[in-house]
Design a protein around this nucleic acid. Sequence first.
DNA 1: CGAGGGATTGAGATTCATCAATCTATGTGG
DNA 2: CCACATAGATTGATGAATCTCAATCCCTCG
Lengths: 256, 256
Amino acid sequence: MAENKSNLIEIEHNRTACTDCSIRRLALFHGVPEEDLKWTQTYRSCQYTVPARREIYRESQHSDFMFTVYHGWFAIYKTPGNGKRQILRISLPGDMLGFQSELEAPMTHSAVSLTDSVLCAFPRHEMPDLLRKNINVAKRLTELNARDMNICQNRLLTIGQQSAIERIAFFCAELFYRIKAIYKEQKSVDIFFPLSQEDIGDSTGLTKIHVNRTLKTMREQGLMEISSKCLKIHDIDSLCKLGNFDPTTVQTYRLY
Amino acid sequence: MAENKSNLIEIEHNRTACTDCSIRRLALFHGVPEEDLKWTQTYRSCQYTVPARREIYRESQHSDFMFTVYHGWFAIYKTPGNGKRQILRISLPGDMLGFQSELEAPMTHSAVSLTDSVLCAFPRHEMPDLLRKNINVAKRLTELNARDMNICQNRLLTIGQQSAIERIAFFCAELFYRIKAIYKEQKSVDIFFPLSQEDIGDSTGLTKIHVNRTLKTMREQGLMEISSKCLKIHDIDSLCKLGNFDPTTVQTYRLY
DNA sequence: CGAGGGATTGAGATTCATCAATCTATGTGG
DNA sequence: CCACATAGATTGATGAATCTCAATCCCTCG
């Protein structure tokens, strides 16, 4: 745990009140009546800032908190020990980090920040109490888990059955729509995209070299391009079709 | 729905009472006090038998029931449309089939029986009521989901980062330990194994031809062999090591 | 005994990984 | 402000893993 803490910098207690939270519609307290937010907030012990590329918790170790992503991007991953890494999903604002049904069991995966970020922390041992006392939160947690399950299953489908270019198309299209759903006001077709080519490879089960070549192909085909942490999608329809990604699935998550 | 029903054969109403259920420790009603079982059982509308290789429900269509597997093997899968198929997981006795947090949404995946089987059916629209009235069932459902999430993430890791032989080793080792956990009395090292080589391929993201060649290699190496629906594991330790499978994870699911 | 589904094997093509080198952008210390 | 260090991006050459196509075999079942 000391290890965890070292990567997190506590910011002034409760800087953002849950009542004022701009992403509450996305997060754990979606559906909690305004009048209850004051006491549900007491389960949120504090907010942390995290610099980019810091480990939040690690596979097989204990973690005292679960988190809601308030700001920033995170990668959830597992390592099979042979120096490889599989990114299971990318977590964005509103997502939960570190929930497991066996609350006190060691973590089954690791989490790392991809950008400078802000996390809302919930002490793990208080969760059962919170879930028992507020049915909205319990229901919401189930929804968030189901959404993550969906993302995981879709990823399994794409990695198991699609080619490199199809996997990358799927991966980028999904992220694009998730970001769009979070930042609805943002009209631009370009999105901030902090992943390295290696991150994309670890997400899609490809080497960074092959990712590079595939991205080149996609650029040449006028599908999309990534440069200086910016994803420019030129032909979203073709991209979705290529990756076999259905944009309506993001909406039917009913989480955004 | 008519389509669903056509594959299911209703058996005499409530042939097996929940109080007498031999696999209850594995299933949804694990943890429900004896005295409550009589009324929780009322949410189980009936039991069905299913012949092998029948579709239980289909991706993108509605399904009126969710199920507990009472007997038999099932494959949960998705199809990307190009004739391919990704098996997401194998469901065994005690597992839930067809739960999604959006109860009334179309199914996100399909399910097919791999053997002659028996299912306990729960009308979908009554689930919220059951979950509200019995906290044990709600908690148990969360556990079962978390376990499935774990299986899915492990699968993602193996498909994304491991070679053919490693994937198959992982896949078979996991199934072996799951079966052993269910049928504890069974001492034999051989287990009934109804999957075709094509099924294994669809589970591990390989073609059936390559599965065949890889199985041959494993046979020659004295690791394991599959013949006439029987999996004989000769060297479980090497198999686990090869597939990077940790047997203790099955125990820590805490579900068996 | 014939039919059909799965298993097996071979040959050749393709995709993707590996190894190695260069290039570019970014940030850092002097 | 420059020189350097570093991480990520890019490209080439080569080889391995896996897929595709095609043929045959084997077992089971009607």
